[in-house]
Design a protein around this nucleic acid. Structure first.
Lengths: 310, 310
DNA sequence: CCATATACTTGCCATGAGCAACTATTAGAG
DNA sequence: CTCTAATAGTTGCTCATGGCAAGTATATGG
C-alpha cells in the first residue's frame, strides 16, 4: 500500500523535526549541570512517589546499572531517600526529599517556561489547534496515559447546527451512500428547530469529549401530546460505549418531565444499531413503507413509545 | 493566563511521550552499530548532496569538532568523499559515495519499516487523522519545511453544507456576537440551495488546503437575469491571501458565463473586509436599512454589479 | 596588507551508558 | 520444606559520545 508508505514518511518527517526541536531544549537542560537522563528520572520521581528503580529503568528505557548510578548520585546529593522497604526487602521505594523537590522545581519551571515560550507566538485559536493535534497524535500513537476525558452532554450553541448537519451528511454518505440531499434535509430541519425553538418543549443534546463531537439527538414537539425524537447520531469512534442509549434516555426523561404522552420517531430500516436502541426502550414499530430518497430505495419506519406506561 | 500554562503542560506531556517513543526507536538504530548522530548525519547527506560540514553541524545542533570526527569516520569507511572545493577552498562539499548510499539504504528501510509498523495497527481513517495531526503540529511549532499545499477550489459534496453552516455560526458568534439564529438562517438557505440545485444556473465553491476548510461562496439564481452571491466566508487563518477576491472572482466569471445580466448580494455594514472585496469588483451599494436580527441591531445592505459592462 | 571571519581539524578529557558479574531476597516447583 | 529460578539492586570494567579550545588554511573587508 502506497498510502501507508506516505503516512510513515510523514511520521518520520515529524520525528526528525521533533528530535531537532527537542535537541535544542536538551542543550538548555544541560546548562543546569544535569543530563537529560537525570532530568527525566527526576521528573518521574517528582510525579510518582515511591517508585522502584527497576520500574523507572523499564519505563524510561534505561540500563538498570546506569539507573542505579544515577540514583546513587541523587542519594549523594540527598535529593532522594530509599526506604529499605517493608514487605519485600529487595525493593527500595524511592522518595524525593524536600531538597530533591527544591532541586527539581527550577528545572521544572524552566522547562515549563520554554514550552510557554514556544507557544507564546501562537494566538489562542492556533494554540488550541496545536494542543488538540498533539493530543490526537499521542492517542493514536498509543499513549495509554492520555486520559480520554469525560463524555459531556450539553445543549446546543453556535456551530452545533452545522456540525450536526455535516456529520449526518458525511456519515450517511460514507456508510449508506446517501447523497447530499439527506444533509440538506437535516440542515432544513435544524434550521426550523432553531427558528421555532421553545426551551420548555424542545431540546438538543450534543455529546462531546475533549471538544470532539461524539453524537447528538433532538426532541421536538410534534403536537402538544407528542414529542418527536430526531437526528440521533453516534460517531463511529464513539460506538459501543452506550452513548446512543444515553442520548435516547435523556430524550425520554425530558419528554416525560414535559408531560408529553408519547414519543414518535422516524427512521430507516438500514439503521440497525439505532433500531436496537429504540427497541430496548420499548419503542414499537407502528408503520413502515418503501420510499425513495437521497438517491436510494429505502424503507422508512415510524416508531412510537407510550410515555405514560412504565 | 492559565490556559497557556495548561497548553504548555500538554506540549511537555507530548514531548515526554515522544522522547520515550523515539528512545525506543533509537535503541534499534544502535543495533546497526551506528549512533543516532551518525544516522541523522547520514540521513541529511542522503537527502542533500554537497552540503558543508558546518551547515550540517548548525542544522543538527552538533559541535563542529564532533561533526568533523563523524565525517572522518565516514570517510574512512569510504561512505563519503569531500571534494576539496571549487571557488572557496575552505569549503569541502560532502558527497555520498555509492558505498555510502548502500550503507544508508538498509537503515533507511528499517526506519521506514518501523514507522510503518507503528502505523499498521491503525485503520486508514485513523492514520489520516494522525498524519493530519502531525502536520498541524509541525506547522504550528514553526517547521518552515512543512509545505502548506495548494489552495483548492472545488464544488460541494456531502459534509460541506454542514461545514459552511457551522463556520458561519461559529465565526459570526465569535466576531460579532450574533446568536445561533444566524446559523439557522444559513442552514435554511443551504438546505434550499441543495434541494433546488441546478448545476447550469448555480454553483458553490469550497476552498480548502490539506483538507482544511478555508472558505466558501455560493451563486444562486434570484431570477433568470439576476444571480445572487451568498455566504462568502474566509477563515481567519486564510485572510490576507486574496482568497475572498478569488472566490468572488469565480462567482462573477460563472455568472457571466451563464448569461446573467447582473449580480446582487445582501450583506451587512459590519463586514468590512467583504465590502472591500465587493467594491474592488465594482459592486455598488443600492440599498441599505436598519434591521434587527441574530440578537443585534444591524444595517443590512444590498449591493449590485452590472455584469454586462466591462 | 592586516585584522577578522569562516571552514574545518585535532588534542584533550569528562561523562554517559552498555555489559556482565555479583549480592540479597523472594516466589515457585516438586 | 528445600532447591532453583526470578527479581531488585549494585558495582567493576570499558569505551564511545561529545564538549571545549587551540590550531591550520582560506577568504573578506577596510
Amino acid at each position: 500500500m502506497n498510502q501507508l508508505k506516505h503516512d510513515a514518511a510523514q511520521l518520520r518527517a515529524f520525528n526528525r523535526f521533533h528530535t531537532g526541536r527537542i535537541g535544542v531544549l536538551q542543550e538548555r537542560m544541560l546548562d543546569s549541570r544535569l543530563s537529560l537522563a537525570q532530568v527525566r528520572v527526576l521528573y518521574e520521581l517528582s510525579a510518582r512517589n515511591g517508585v522502584l528503580a527497576s520500574q523507572l529503568a523499564r519505563e524510561l528505557g534505561l540500563d538498570p546499572g546506569y539507573m542505579s548510578r544515577l540514583l546513587a548520585g541523587f542519594r549523594r546529593k540527598r535529593w532522594i531517600t530509599t526506604a529499605p522497604a517493608s514487605s519485600d526487602k529487595r525493593r527500595r521505594p524511592i522518595v524525593l526529599t524536600k531538597a530533591g523537590r527544591a532541586a527539581f522545581e527550577p528545572l521544572d519551571r524552566r522547562s515549563q517556561a520554554e514550552a510557554e515560550a514556544l507557544l507564546a507566538p501562537l494566538d489562542s485559536a492556533r494554540r488550541r489547534r496545536l494542543v488538540e493535534a498533539l493530543r490526537t497524535a499521542r492517542e493514536l500513537l498509543g499513549d495509554e496515559s492520555v486520559a480520554p476525558g469525560p463524555v459531556v452532554l450539553r445543549q446546543h450553541r453556535p456551530g452545533d447546527i452545522g456540525m450536526v448537519a455535516k456529520r449526518h451528511g458525511e456519515l450517511y454518505a460514507e456508510e449508506y451512500g446517501w447523497d447530499e440531499r439527506f444533509e440538506a434535509l437535516v440542515a432544513g430541519i435544524l434550521a426550523r428547530f432553531i427558528e421555532n425553538f421553545r426551551a420548555e418543549r424542545e431540546r438538543c443534546w450534543i455529546a462531546e469529549r475533549d471538544g470532539q463531537f461524539l453524537g447528538c439527538v433532538f426532541v421536538v414537539e410534534k403536537n402538544p401530546d407528542t414529542a418527536q425524537l430526531r437526528m440521533l447520531l453516534v460517531e463511529p469512534a464513539a460506538r459501543g460505549m452506550g452513548l446512543g442509549k444515553q442520548l435516547v434516555g435523556e430524550c425520554i426523561r425530558f419528554a416525560r418531565s414535559k408531560r408529553y404522552r408519547r414519543m414518535v420517531l422516524w427512521t430507516n430500516s438500514v439503521l440497525d444499531a439505532a433500531r436496537h436502541v429504540y427497541e430496548s426502550f420499548g419503542f414499537r414499530l407502528i408503520e413502515q413503507g418503501k420510499h425513495s430518497a437521497f438517491g436510494k430505495e429505502l424503507v422508512e419506519q415510524t416508531w412510537e413509545l407510550d410515555l405514560a406506561v412504565d
